[in-house]
Design a protein around this nucleic acid. Structure first.
Length: 374
RNA sequence: GGAGGGGUAGCCAAGUGGUCAACGGCAGCAGACUGUAAAUCUGCCCUCUACGGAGUUCGAAGGUUCGAAUCCUUCCCCCUCCA
């Protein structure tokens, strides 16, 4: 029943684990590419898998509007629809409660959105969100929450957290347990330790298949985010996966894994790829910059992606400059490959009990910079 | 040779007496991007700048005016039509 989780090893706070789902296993720590609208933008599903990604994220709100959960269900579910045979986690629409604040109204019952596509009104309740995620056939569903904006006063964060907590309880009641399918709760509470702990404890009392930490990387800064994790993670059960939502940069991932996080998602590698920022072993590189004009070297010597094995920086720069879609595609693939390699490196390091050294090495290489003179 | 139209910043292009260092767009130079309303957004983009400003510009040279990219004169160049 539900999704399984096995904790395989621990090192310096970091955890090596394995999540079992109806559509296969996920070795953790893992990064989930974001495929909001049933596509990781610019990538064919098979190519996403080839980067090393084990699981992707899709979005309740966006798929509810288009093409609709009912239609996806009728067509055989999201896996078949988007040709992704591995596990899928769906976000509940909670992030859109924040990001589309101008287009929605929150009540105790749920959220009413005015579609950003055509203005039509849609109601999203905790029950409806769970139902949609079931119709999509998500392996891991998320409870509907309110992603608390930053900054928020302690009172605002408390109100927001209590709302999320009430919704979590209703989501849990609405969720029907099936083998290989799980429901994760989401810890809110802003940057306030007491709220975070109270939220975590209350969620654990309800009982979920995994626990997410939400409402971070929304402007508070990395130091503050790590501090919140230090306060929150100890309140979560060790025998369940922990998911830090919407995070982050390579340094964020290293720091969060050290603090006991197992699962991540973030639009950064895909969005940055489309806007021509590459993540490399030598730090971030803006491929639009004129300095790449005549550079015959690969983007990242150590990378096995198509961009790095078959093309020069000069070519990638040219594609970026020309606005060619291939440029965005190649850099998206590269970034996902980099993220997957980074997570695989962390998993090996934990298994070998050298996580701290591995993390330090990655950060040092990044700090050394990537632009040797031509 | 005759008649008409036109020359504005790297390119295209507004502006036709002051609110013009001169709208826009493109190109260029950077920056941002963290559960995707994002193949997007922001800044700079004549020169110098201690960013408060200062100095030179609108084919060229004169002139009118308190004041000119805008009006007048001459010249140079481009385009169209007629011969």
């Amino acid at each position: 029943m539900t999704t399984g989780f096995a904790l395989v090893a621990e090192d310096a706070g970091a955890r090596l684990g394995r999540i079992e789902t109806a559509h296969g296993a996920v070795e953790t720590p893992a990064f989930m590419p974001v495929g909001t609208a049933a596509t990781v933008k610019g990538m064919r599903a098979a190519d996403v898998a080839a980067t090393g990604a084990q699981i992707v994220l899709a979005n309740t709100y966006h798929l509810m509007l288009r093409p609709s959960a009912e239609r996806v269900e009728k067509l055989g579910g999201l896996h078949k629809f988007m040709d992704w045979s591995g596990p899928i986690l769906t976000d509940s629409g909670g992030f859109q409660v924040m990001s589309l604040a101008k287009l929605r109204d929150i009540t105790e019952t749920g959220v009413t959105f005015r579609s950003h596509l055509d203005g039509a009104a849609y109601a999203l309740t905790p029950e409806r969100s769970v139902e949609i995620q079931r119709m999509l056939d998500a392996d891991i569903s998320m409870v509907l929450d309110e992603c608390t904006p930053f900054p928020a006063t302690e009172d605002e964060a408390r109100r927001s957290m209590e709302l999320t907590l009430g919704w979590a309880e209703r989501s849990k009641r609405a969720f029907s347990a099936r083998a290989g399918y799980g429901l994760f709760g989401i810890v809110q509470g802003g940057v306030y330790p007491a709220l975070r702990r109270r939220c975590a404890e209350a969620l654990v009392a309800i009982g979920f298949d995994g626990y997410a930490v939400g409402g971070l990387a929304v402007g508070e800064g990395q130091a503050e985010m790590f501090r919140v994790l230090d306060e929150t993670v100890p309140a979560l059960p060790k025998d369940r996966p922990r998911y830090l939502m919407g995070v982050g940069t390579p340094a964020d991932l290293l720091g969060a894994v050290k603090r006991g996080i197992d699962l991540f998602d973030c639009v950064l590698p895909t969005r940055s790829g489309r806007t021509h920022q590459a993540f490399t072993r030598g730090g971030t590189v803006n491929m639009r910059n004129a300095r790449h004009l005549d550079d015959p070297r690969p983007l990242d010597e150590g990378c096995g992606c198509t961009a790095c094995t078959r093309h020069s920086r000069a070519y990638l720069h040219h594609l970026a400059r020309a606005g060619e879609m291939l440029g965005a595609m190649l850099l998206t693939e590269h970034n996902l490959r980099y993220y997957a390699d980074l997570m695989a490196g962390m998993r090996r390091a934990i298994a070998d009990r050298r996580f701290d050294a591995y993390a330090a090495g990655v950060l040092e290489a990044e700090a050394r910079g990537d632009v040797p003179a031509l």
